[in-house]
Every structure is written in structure tokens, then in C-alpha cells.
């Protein structure tokens, strides 16, 4: 079992590393998606089916599309794959600083927290129990999260749609540019 975990973790970290090192944006995006799929595999390995399927549905199915759309729609040149500019010393230094800061915070948090030794009997939680707990005890929290996400979605739509030149009344806006 441990070998399987190491294999999944290796594949996940490997694809994440390759995504960062790659020079091709689309390849990086696809490798990032592979890494997310690896997270789902770890959930499956841990026996958390529900979370694993949700992870695949949300990350591999939906977020990946957003990432790919962003990459394809925001590129300035007409070449199918945009190459990232070669690394500079400044960028490398900034990356190393940011990365080490995040790592330090995470390491501090992990080292300072005390892990209680696990119960001898592993808790058997089914999807049904998770659903009942989510809907009964934490129903209010679930609703609030839903509202926040909806507001964020509406905000994103408004941000993306505010283009003064596009509208039914100004369809000839492009004519003055020869």
C-alpha cells in the first residue's frame, strides 16, 4: 500500500515539477491537471471516494477548462503555443524567496501542531454520514459558502462583460478603424 502511495505522490510531484519547468504554457496546464488528478488518486488510496470523485469533477472537469480558456483567450501572439520568456536572475530570486517563505510558514505550522495518536479503530465514515452532517449540523455554513461562491461567480461575469464597445447599440464600433 505504501508503494502505491509513493508511486502516486511521485507522479503528482513529478508532473507538478514538469509543469513549472516547462516552457510551453499548454503543456504546463495539462501537467497541472495531471497533478490534480494525482491528488484525487491519493484520496482514492485513502478510501475517501466521495472527495476523490468531487476532486476529479471540480478540478479535472471544471477548473481545468477555466485554466485552458484563460491560456487560449489571453494570448497575444497568433502562434498556437506561447513560449514563456527565458528566466532572469530577478525572477528566479523572487520565485525562490516566495517559495521559501511559503515553505517556512507551512513547516512552522506543521511543526508547531501536535498530532494526537490515532484511534485504534479507523472511523468508518460513509458518504451518507458526510451528507447528513453537512446538511444538518453545518447547513448554515454550507449555505453561506454557496452564496459567497455565487456572488463571486456573478462578480466574475460582470468583470468579464464590462466592455463599453460591445452592445446592441454600438455594433458598428469597429467601422471607424480601417
Amino acid at each position: 500500500m505504501t508503494i502505491a502511495l509513493l508511486l502516486i505522490a511521485g507522479l503528482m510531484l513529478g508532473s507538478a515539477t514538469a509543469a513549472m519547468a516547462g516552457r510551453n504554457l499548454i503543456h504546463s496546464a495539462l501537467l497541472l491537471i495531471a497533478s490534480w488528478a494525482g491528488v484525487a488518486a491519493i484520496y482514492l488510496w485513502a478510501g475517501a471516494e466521495f472527495v476523490a470523485f468531487a476532486q476529479v469533477l471540480v478540478y479535472v472537469g471544471a477548473i481545468s477548462m477555466v485554466v485552458l480558456f484563460a491560456v487560449l483567450l489571453t494570448r497575444q501572439n497568433q502562434i498556437a503555443d506561447q513560449l514563456i520568456a527565458p528566466p532572469t536572475r530577478l525572477r528566479a530570486a523572487a520565485a525562490v524567496t516566495t517559495g521559501s517563505c511559503v515553505a517556512a510558514v507551512l513547516a512552522a505550522a506543521i511543526c508547531s501542531s501536535s498530532f494526537a495518536p490515532g484511534a485504534a479503530e479507523p472511523p468508518s465514515t460513509t458518504v451518507r454520514q458526510i451528507g447528513l452532517e453537512l446538511m444538518r449540523q453545518d447547513g448554515a455554513a454550507l449555505l453561506i459558502v454557496g452564496i459567497i461562491l455565487t456572488v463571486a461567480l456573478l462578480g466574475a461575469t460582470i468583470l468579464a462583460a464590462t466592455d463599453p464597445k460591445v452592445g446592441p447599440g454600438s455594433s458598428r464600433a469597429g467601422e471607424d478603424v480601417p
Partner: peptide, 17 residues
């Protein structure tokens, strides 16, 4: 599976990719 419907849509999600 307990979460069969979720599995169905999760498996179908990769075809878009």
C-alpha cells in the same frame, strides 16, 4: 458505489479535456 452518480460525471469530465 455509494457515490455512483458522482463517479459517472467525474469519469465523463475527462473527455472534454
Amino acid at each position: 458505489l455509494d457515490a455512483a452518480l458522482l463517479y459517472f460525471f467525474a469519469a465523463g469530465a475527462a473527455t472534454e479535456l
